[in-house]
Design a protein around this nucleic acid. Structure first.
Length: 573
DNA sequence: GCCGTTTTCGGCCCGACTGTTTTCAGTCG
């Protein structure tokens, strides 16, 4: 069964090929359709069955037909025809920074370059500098960009970039003349990975700030250095873009640089209809240049007829329509979170004791935590055998009685074995308060096998939570093959809560949103392995917010008095 | 190729920076 993402790839490739053939507007149309489809929470096949493909924004007659053709045959003839017209390596050349369709065309027509390898040769033989409109400098720039492309075409997980950003904000925020400083871009939207880091500063004088920025001790390469906009590569390979604007333009600039690109394009279309234009400086009247809004994001959104849209939602996946109808969700916030149901201790592979984890949770203002150490099958994580687990349950009970500020639940992160059975028998599970099931080993089964394994675990009458349901670890490990629709259906039927794991970012935002759409409740857990580990909940919370989740969609926003009623077997004392 | 509170034809987001030009094209975000 073809997935939406397969047809998305087809349309992006068609767009690239049309670019290379010199088309201007058709590529945009295909990209717009591709983005719309990426945002769907429903299978194209189902939409096609209802003959509603053309209701998708950006999808008209021609694209609708191509979707149907793809669903039927698994191919799109128009794509095959385009591929036949364009040498196969050219599309990859477009991936190199600063090389666009026009440059690729020239490289191919004048120099016969159609692959990365041929480009490298042409650069070595200094043939690129002889192209019309090119010179020594542009040849050198292409050489560097090619190196960059080969070395690191990767986005970094948000947790690593987040801390780098905090450091840069501290340094740059301390420069004289800086009135305001904010991160923008995908980091402000809390995307799970970040390609480059965007920082925005409000100041009356930009040049000194730009000079200081490009002379930071960690700068490895300066990509651009203008009076208001500069880009650098810092030592660990991350690209950082800095933009300085006047304080009165800060709102418009922040809106603009936060993106996403798709969100901004959609906003501009709305502005355009009113004969206005929206730029990084202001929202203004096209006819007389009158400024309508510029100082804050709130003013700009309000002028466009909608409330301020939280950055996490700005992906053009329905948030603008919702905002226009005043139907934005009231997103779950950190202050809504009352506890954490996935916490490890020294008993298995954690670093700290039950007491210190409880103390750290109290300091965060939590009402409850569940200690859920690994089960015996996971030897590498010192998984607990039955006797150890029983000892731990007793120990936790004691500590729970001593500490009046918090409830400590006895939980377990029980391994789902290869055959779908659990690492503990039911009578052992029954002694705990909350059971979290998950998979850590033997993850290479087929989609059917992995799905069946997870489904049979969820059918166990003691399982409350399925932890990191897809198995992915953002930036490191891909998900296992699993049918998430089936998984969600089962979770709903057997009252299992799917986890958003703050360390792995699993479920991913898109899937968490689908889960909500299906009426499931989720739990946002830290998976903390030491006392300072609770703070990473902010990354899981960001996933929840990007998934449009409200407090009522997240069970660990409930007070304990209500939470224990929806878990299957909490022992109340 | 898509779309419609000026439109079923004629538009399609906006501006900074770079390198090559001598007024601009290409790329990016």
């Amino acid at each position: 069964m073809p997935e939406n993402s397969d047809i998305v790839k087809v349309f992006y490739e068609i767009a690239d090929l049309l670019d290379l053939l010199g088309e201007t507007f058709k590529p945009r149309a295909y990209r717009r359709a591709a983005r719309s489809i990426e945002a769907l929470s429903e299978d194209l096949a189902d939409i096609a069955t209802r003959s509603e493909l053309e209701d998708i924004p950006g999808v008209g007659k021609a694209i609708s037909q191509k979707i149907q053709e793809f669903l039927k045959t698994g191919k799109v003839r128009a794509l095959e025809e385009l591929r036949a017209k364009v040498p196969s390596g050219l599309v990859e050349l477009l991936r190199i920074p600063d090389i666009g369709p026009k440059t690729v065309q020239k490289l191919h027509e004048k120099l016969g370059v159609s692959t990365i390898e041929q480009l490298r040769e042409a650069l070595e033989e200094h043939r690129v500098r002889d192209l019309p409109g090119f010179g020594e400098r542009s040849e050198e720039s292409i050489r560097r960009n090619l190196e960059l492309y080969i070395k690191q075409q990767q986005r970094s997980p948000i947790n690593t970039v987040y801390h780098l950003a905090q450091k840069l904000l501290n340094v740059l925020g301390g420069l004289s003349g800086v009135e305001k400083i904010e991160v923008a871009g995908s980091l402000r939207r809390w995307r799970e990975t970040v390609g480059d880091l965007d920082i925005l500063i409000a100041s009356e004088k930009s040049e000194p700030i730009m000079s200081a920025f490009t002379q930071l001790p960690d700068v490895k390469q300066i990509l651009a250095h203008g009076p208001t906009k500069s880009s650098i590569i810092i030592r660990d390979g991350m690209q950082v873009d800095l933009r300085v604007v006047k304080p009165e333009n800060f709102g418009a600039a922040l809106q603009y640089f936060t993106g996403s690109k798709a969100h901004n394009i959609a906003l501009r279309r709305i502005a355009q209809k009113r004969k206005w234009k929206l730029s990084e400086y202001s929202l203004s009247d096209k006819r007389d240049g009158r400024i309508i809004a510029q100082r804050t994001e709130e003013e700009i959104y309000e002028a466009l007829g909608m409330p301020w849209v939280p950055p996490e939602l700005r992906e053009d996946t329905g948030e603008i329509e919702a905002a226009l109808e005043n139907q934005l969700p009231k997103l779950v916030e950190l202050s809504d979170i009352r506890g954490d149901l996935h916490v490890h201790t020294k008993w298995s592979d954690g670093r700290d004791t039950v007491e210190s984890m409880a103390q750290a949770a109290i300091e965060r203002g939590y009402e409850y935590i569940a200690i859920s150490d690994h089960s015996k099958r996971i030897k590498i994580a010192k998984g607990l055998a039955e006797t150890k687990l029983r000892e731990q349950i007793e120990a936790i009970q004691k500590i729970d009685e001593e500490l009046s500020d918090i409830r400590i639940l006895s939980g377990v992160e029980v391994e789902i074995l290869s055959d779908g059975s659990l690492d503990f028998s039911d009578d052992v599970l029954a002694e705990t308060d909350v059971v979290t099931a998950s998979i850590h080993y033997d993850t290479r089964g087929s989609e059917e096998e992995m799905t069946e394994r997870l489904v049979s675990a969820m059918k166990n009458k003691y399982v409350d939570i399925l932890a990191h349901p897809t198995g992915r670890l953002v930036g490191e490990r891909p998900p296992y093959s699993v049918n998430l629709d089936k998984l969600m259906e089962t979770a709903k039927h057997y009252h299992v809560f799917l986890e958003i794991n703050s360390h792995r970012l699993d479920l991913p935002d898109v899937e968490a949103r689908r889960a909500k759409d299906r009426g499931l409740k989720l739990v946002v857990n830290s998976d903390a392995h030491w006392a300072n580990g609770f703070e990473i909940i902010k990354f899981g919370l960001a996933v929840a917010r990007r998934a449009w989740l409200e407090a009522t969609d997240v069970i660990n926003t409930l007070p304990f008095s209500k939470l224990h009623r929806i878990l299957k077997h909490v022992h109340i004392n």
